[in-house]
């Protein structure tokens, strides 16, 4: 502590303000009794009422929820296998395929999947969105699961094997319960990433499969009202709850360690 000079603290606190003030403003204006996000007029629940009567928004929310749940389930299974394989074996191709989607600009994955789906004659909609979301979520789950495995005591599995467990029994009864927090954290992460994704969804969605981010985008582009603030506030609340659960289960998972 003694080394940190006052300017370091000033700059650090300023950085935190820079990170949080914009989000605070979004939340505050969701309760503002004015159509303009400019000046505080008075408190109201009005925009939440508008939000809950907005059929398009509610349909988009259901779509997002469904896509998020299916994506989370499948990418957790595939991502756990990938993370385990990367930990257990010396593989060359799998790590590249798992990590590249995370590293390249998202738009590249969006457009290549668009070409691919049109080429195989798959109608763009919920299915194409889920298939795309799984492709980019596998990597995040795999990283979380692998990091959990790296911290594992190898001798526990060996002990199980010495006591007569088959490799499958040793995995199911010893390894799996130990890495479970990592798997659950990975599942929550995949769910959040899917619910929040805009860029890849933008290219792989059809006219009948509007998700929450796509709906927010069209509102921002066409007519901004504080209803956007209200839906943003609820979405942030949901993410916050999921993050708290994830950090309880696997400290470090949220940081993508």
């Amino acid at each position: 502590m003694k080394r940190s000079s006052w300017w370091l603290y000033t700059a650090g606190i300023a950085a935190y303000l820079f990170l949080y003030l914009p989000l605070v403003i979004v939340v505050v204006f969701s309760f503002n009794d004015s159509r303009l996000n400019a000046e505080w007029v008075g408190f109201t629940w009005h925009w939440y009422g508008v939000l809950f009567n907005d059929d398009q928004m509610i349909e988009a929310a259901w779509n997002s929820l469904l896509i998020g749940l299916v994506t989370s389930f499948i990418s957790t299974v595939l991502g756990t296998l990938a993370g385990y394989a990367m930990y257990r074996y010396r593989l060359r191709l799998l790590p590249v395929l798992v990590l590249t989607p995370i590293a390249i600009p998202e738009i590249l994955m969006g457009v290549s999947l668009l070409i691919f789906f049109v080429m195989i004659n798959l109608t763009l909609g919920m299915v194409s969105i889920v298939l795309s979301h799984i492709a980019f979520c596998i990597g995040f789950v795999a990283i979380v699961v692998r990091s959990r495995l790296t911290g594992l005591d190898e001798s526990l599995t060996e002990a199980a094997r010495d006591l007569g467990a088959t490799p499958w029994e040793a995995f199911r009864l010893v390894t799996l319960p130990l890495i479970m927090p990592g798997i659950v954290a990975g599942a929550l992460m995949a769910f959040t990433l899917s619910i929040d994704d805009f860029v890849i969804t933008f290219f792989t969605a059809g006219p009948d499969s509007v998700t929450l981010p796509l709906q927010i985008y069209s509102m921002i582009k066409i007519a901004v009202t504080p209803e956007v603030n209200a839906v943003s506030t609820l979405l942030m609340l949901l993410t916050l709850v999921l993050i708290v659960i994830a950090t309880r289960l696997a400290p470090g998972a949220v940081r993508g360690e």
């Binding site: 989000l23 921002i220 979405l235 993410t239």
Partner: peptide, 16 residues
């Protein structure tokens, strides 16, 4: 903040 929706974070600056 990174875990909150990307569009929301951009929208916040639209307001500011």
């Amino acid at each position: 903040p990174f875990w909150s929706n990307f569009l929301i974070r951009v929208y916040a600056w639209m307001i500011i």
